[in-house]
């Protein structure tokens, strides 16, 4: 396997997932390196979102969910990590901007408060810091007590990124984060992702092949629950080894 960066963040070995009798992920092996952006592409129902939600154990909310194989975060089985702690370390940004029905400030402060008590001052500093990290501070600093629903779609999505950053994650999972956004907002979110890479490991599920090409260090192609191919992004897009990868990328480009 190709290695970029230093050290392995996630190590997934022979992962299988079923929802009832539907076999959603089939024998997947992946290593995710620290401080890289891994893009996951594939058609609808190829298992990419299911794969993503395995990493923070969010699939467990569904009934009839079954999993076999190993998923290790820094060599520790994720099932032996306390689930709140795992999800703090592995943050997630959802497909649609999903602010909580709270103020802008409280959206960012929510996760912090759930993990430990802090003084008001400290909380305010932390909220400002993370809003700056998500390039949102200047736009919202005068309206922190307003409802988060008053923000535009792109602002909401950056708020969701800030909210995720606030709890101090090591990995951030993006689940088609730009599917509801216009091109300008999308560019802003992509910029944020590339800058975040310096500090975090990022897994990006996307329907947009061009987006994967723009921001991914490595790209994984999923089809029918199988990992067809995983390689450096430029290799995937210039010289894919598998005909199916080639077909998918061409189809999307053509």
């Amino acid at each position: 396997m190709v290695t970029i960066g230093v050290g392995v963040k996630f190590e997934i070995h022979d992962l299988n997932i079923w929802f009832g009798s539907a076999h959603a992920i089939r024998h997947v092996n992946i290593e995710i390196q620290t401080n890289e952006i891994l893009s996951v592409i594939g058609p609808a129902n190829s298992g990419k979102t299911t794969f993503l939600r395995t990493l923070n154990r969010l699939n467990e909310l569904y009934a009839n969910y079954n999993i076999t194989g190993e998923v290790e975060l820094e060599r520790e089985d994720i099932r032996s990590i306390e689930i709140g702690e795992l999800r703090r370390k592995v943050g997630m940004v959802f497909a649609l901007p999903l602010p909580l029905p709270l103020s802008i400030f409280d959206n960012v402060a929510y996760g912090i408060k759930m993990h430990d008590r802090r003084g008001k001052k400290e909380l305010e500093e932390k909220v400002e810091e993370t809003l700056r990290q998500a390039y949102l501070w200047e736009e919202v600093k005068d309206r922190l007590s307003e409802s988060a629903f008053k923000l535009s779609g792109g602002q909401q999505q950056r708020l969701c990124i800030a909210r995720t950053l606030a709890v101090g994650p090591e990995v951030i999972l993006f689940d088609e984060p730009c599917s509801g956004l216009d091109p300008i907002s999308t560019a802003k979110v992509e910029d944020a992702m590339v800058k975040l890479k310096e500090k975090f490991t990022i897994v990006l599920v996307t329907n947009n092949v061009k987006q994967a090409a723009r921001v991914g260090d490595k790209t994984a192609f999923f089809l029918n629950g199988e990992l067809v191919e995983l390689d450096k992004t430029d290799r995937i897009f210039t010289a894919p080894q598998d005909k199916r990868t080639d077909g998918y990328i061409r189809g999307k480009f053509g």
């Binding site: 999800r87 943050g91 999903l98």
Partner: peptide, 25 residues
């Protein structure tokens, strides 16, 4: 359901999610 997922994804426990997100709404 998405509110619950967001809260859980931030590392809140199930009861915290109920107490701070589900109940108030």
């Amino acid at each position: 359901q998405s509110f619950r997922e967001v809260s859980l994804s931030l590392g809140a426990s199930k009861w915290q999610t109920i107490r701070h997100i589900v109940l108030p709404n």
